[in-house]
Design a protein around this nucleic acid. Structure first.
Lengths: 226, 226
DNA sequence: AGTTAAGAAACGCAACCGTTCACTAACACG
DNA sequence: CGTGTTAGTGAACGGTTGCGTTTCTTAACT
């Protein structure tokens, strides 16, 4: 899972620094316990997830360009050291965060009608785009400063399988006679996702469920009819 | 022209700093003339345009989040002082740059056929989105860190008039019997622009002309047919 | 000639980078 | 159950970048 994305980035910008010179030892004595009730010190997987979530939240909020490691650490309620222990650079963190954000592929629906199949698939897409992860993925993919090859990886892993599911739904509809034969192509399958993304970009989140229904009934069904 | 955008921002974040304290006067004597052949020192409108163009180029290249005044000054081959003489802050510069980027409204086409009307309008849109200005506007509008009210202004001035022209073209087609009556609505008019934007986002610039033709013939015409 | 403003180089300040260190909470094992 | 190990916390460090400002010199206009 993570391999593909990691490899994609490592190949582009892999860099590390040798350890620095020693330093004078500070002699500060921190304050004693303040008797706080909760000091849940998270570890391992727990903390890692928290950092990735915080990264996604920040990317969604301020964009990739303004993402800072200090911001991430603060948002995750931890220190930079814990972040740097896991990821050598901001890019690496970003890549793993994106990987963490990728929603699992839903089961292919087969309700027996194109309309319902489309509705299921596009509703899943609506939920994805409305979620924090979806927001972060949007911000990531539509940022010109992000490496195009990275975007291509996300596209390949997120967009293409979903488009294929749409094409499959159209093909099943064609076999049932519901769908015009030459409407079964990638161009047509792109219409639904494109309009949802466009709605998201134009009106901002969240994309309402009613929009998806109107999209299917007012645009897709007339477009597909034999 | 500029008024609307300026007012929109000034209302949101208007701030100025009082002058600072005096300082020790430096006593450096810069190098003498190096006999360079061109030292075109631009002034006034000329320089202002160069700065705005440089801003647009940078926004398109690195996004809003990573836009810096020093980068702008360098790209415009001038100094920060000349930038700050005109715009008190980065936001103000950004707003005027966007205003400078806004393409003029094209004349409404009326070729006598919906297909050709759509082709004209969407080709104009294609050219706009492929231009540096279009690239900058995209980066600006799809950046979550940009104030939503500002985006709304751009939307109102750029997107809405063009969508109205598309609706008008559909209405004329309906009157001629070319277009299904209930296809004359904003939702349908959105399809063309949404797919062009989606193509731009997914495949990156430039959007080829052939895409627009396919879009019209394979998607819009089947969608509109009575 | 006199005025205006562009160019160039600094300044103090703040944020962020990536690193290091001392401390300590959570865990693992005999 | 006590002890040793691992790893999170929190604070600092030096370095870099960008901000917004200031100053001086100099080219372009009136």
């Amino acid at each position: 899972m993570t391999k593909a994305l990691r490899a994609a980035v490592r190949g582009i910008k892999g860099k590390h620094n040798p350890p620095g010179s020693p330093r004078v030892a500070p002699l500060s004595a921190p304050a004693p316990d303040d008797g706080a009730l909760v000091s849940h010190r998270r570890r391992g997987q727990d903390l890692e997830t928290a950092i990735l979530d915080a990264t996604l939240e920040l990317v969604g909020a301020v964009g990739v360009g303004s993402l800072t490691m200090e911001g991430v650490a603060a948002a995750a309620h931890t220190g930079k050291a814990s972040v740097y222990r896991r990821w050598p650079s901001k890019e690496d963190l970003l890549v793993d965060a994106m990987d963490h954000a990728l929603p699992p592929l839903p089961d292919a629906p087969d309700t027996g009608s194109v309309r319902d199949d489309l509705l299921v698939l596009l509703r899943i897409m609506r939920e994805a785009i409305n979620s924090p992860s979806g927001c972060a993925i949007q911000a990531f993919m539509f940022d010109n400063s992000v490496d195009r090859s990275l975007i291509a990886v996300v596209k390949h892993r997120v967009m293409e399988p979903r488009q294929q599911m749409l094409i499959d739904a159209l093909a099943r509809g064609r076999d049932r006679g519901e769908v015009r034969a030459d409407a079964v192509n990638p161009r047509t399958a792109e219409v639904g996702p494109a309009l949802i993304v466009h709605q998201y970009l134009m009106q901002g989140p969240p994309v309402p469920d009613a929009f998806v229904v109107q999209l299917v009934d007012d645009v897709l069904m007339p477009l597909l009819r034999p």
